[in-house]
Design a protein around this nucleic acid. Structure first.
Lengths: 214, 214
DNA sequence: ACAGAGTTCAAACGCTTGTTTAAATCAAGC
DNA sequence: GCTTGATTTAAACAAGCGTTTGAACTCTGT
């Protein structure tokens, strides 16, 4: 029943999955405890209760994402921070970013769980949303904005640049958030490597289209 | 306490809001009944139970969306079905579509409730998803695909055309689904007419960019 | 071997859940 | 005005919920 790590970690993982699927109110701490191979009381012992576990999971997600995309993120951030960033270079950096992040988002089971949990938080945000936004989301969007602004030759602090960054993000996230519709419409049964290739190609097309003058 | 329509309708509206906020498992039929100014037993009487109400709401959403975008949709569908559809014409139709639909999606309280409910269904689809997909979503996406394909001069049945349609859709939906992040990042407190203008302008930029050769 | 803190366990605690029941109320038709 | 069917009501049902409890089980340092 038990996997490798300690009860605390197993509860975080099981909770992430469970909360993401049915939401905070719908979640059942007995089911979480069972899935984690732990006793119900362990949740109250380690996290002080259901809400405590939920908030801890938000932090756990930030850690997870940071650890996963950390190396690439550092590289891109350094690149994006260069003052003499040329449009063509920024476009290439953006292309690399969507290739890696897009594939991760499309195929990784971890990313699936993260996305589910985060999306539910967007639907009616609680304290957990601030944890995630301040921890990873805001930072990531600011970097994306700088790159997009460089490609479009916009002021990176302008509202337009931020809107453009959301536009690009939307084109990636739609394949994660509207997965059920994507699978039906494209007649796919699942998203494996082959399907991810097509999604990534679509994202590269989006980047290539950025800032091209009519 | 009671609004105008009958108990059945009030339960559908209250349930749409409540299920959308906290999900099926998290929803509380007592809270729904109270919000609707009805007795708990009314849910079982009219819909046979919690699940029955949930499924009925899916149908109610399809009706609502159809009634709201019906006139525009009919016009666009007729337009998109024309065999001799020229790229420039299709682009103009697409521009009109995102202007109307984008503003509705961004500002309408009804659209907010629909989007919330539908998004939750995407996270783990049940029978209700099929009701919504077959009822409105698939139809709408097929029309969108035809228009996008015409602009890009692609085969409207090609996988690429369908992916491109999702890309465009993603750019509109991100402002609805990731609303919490959008508000934070753009330092908006709410999305009123002024903010909707900026979102619609961003969507028009996305349409203008479609199919422009480098 | 022992002590003591850290952790896990089964059992029980109120309380809330979705559903059911049977009586009360309403709206027409004759 | 009474009857009949549809609808609404308050009350009760068992099952499930999050939390608490106190005893049992680790494990580490001495």
């Amino acid at each position: 029943m038990n996997e490798q790590p300690n009860t605390r970690s197993r509860l975080l993982e099981a909770g992430l999955d469970h909360f993401g699927r049915v939401g905070f109110e719908g979640a059942n701490i007995r089911a979480i405890a069972t899935a984690a191979g732990a006793n119900i009381a362990a949740i109250n012992y380690h996290f002080g209760g259901k809400r405590g576990l939920y908030l801890a999971i938000a932090g756990h997600i930030v850690e997870g994402i940071t650890a996963t995309i950390g190396p690439m993120a550092a590289e891109i951030i350094a690149f994006a921070a260069r003052p003499e960033l040329r449009p063509a270079d920024a476009r290439e950096a953006l292309r690399q970013f969507v290739k890696t992040a897009g594939r991760l988002l499309a195929t990784s089971p971890k990313a699936e769980r993260w996305a589910r949990f985060i999306l539910r938080e967007q639907l009616d945000p609680t304290d957990a949303f601030d944890v995630i936004y301040d921890g990873i989301m805001g930072r990531m969007h600011r970097t994306l904005t700088r790159l997009v602004a460089a490609v479009l030759e916009l002021d990176p602090d302008s509202e337009t640049a931020r809107l453009e960054a959301f536009s690009l993000l939307g084109q990636a996230l739609i394949f994660r958030f509207a997965r059920a519709a994507v699978l039906k419409r494209l007649d796919w049964s699942t998203i494996g490597e082959g399907e991810a290739d097509k999604i990534v190609a679509q994202l590269e097309r989006a980047v290539a289209r950025l800032g091209v003058k009519p």
